[in-house]
């Protein structure tokens, strides 16, 4: 394997990723007073992003054929129920992930 090629490949991935992460700060960070709508989006955008991120994590489930994404759906519903009732992040994740890992090994093998 070529040392320089590997080195530059990693540098490029790191640089592009860094530029993407910096973009909003490069555009807005230098301004004295943040535009009104940026402050507004700082409040309104996170719930939309988080929901989309969850869908992104689940994007590859196949609902038209066995196992119909059931392992994911059951775990997701369970997590929502536990988090709304117990309000314990650690418990929700622990139970949700454990159930998921059990389901994909037993009832809905992938």
């Amino acid at each position: 394997m070529d040392f320089l090629y590997t080195f530059f490949a990693i540098i490029i991935v790191a640089t592009v990723t860094g530029l993407i992460r910096s973009a909003p700060f490069l555009v807005f960070g230098g301004k004295k007073e943040l535009p009104n709508y940026v402050q507004y989006l700082g409040y309104a955008l996170p719930p939309a992003i988080m929901v989309i991120l969850v869908v992104y994590c689940l994007r590859n489930i196949e609902i038209s054929a066995f196992p119909f994404g059931l392992a994911e759906i059951i775990s997701v519903v369970l997590i929502i129920i536990i988090q709304t009732t117990k309000k314990n992040t650690f418990l929700s994740i622990l139970i949700g992930t454990t159930i998921y890992m059990v389901l994909i090994r037993t009832v809905f093998p992938v």
């Binding site: 969850v54 997701v76 988090q83 992930t97």
Partner: peptide, 23 residues
Amino acid sequence: MKGIEFSATAFFLVVCVNQWETY
């Protein structure tokens, strides 16, 4: 460890639930 990566999804989902309740 197959399936353990679901814990990230689970965490994102928990954040959603919390936001749903606070907003």
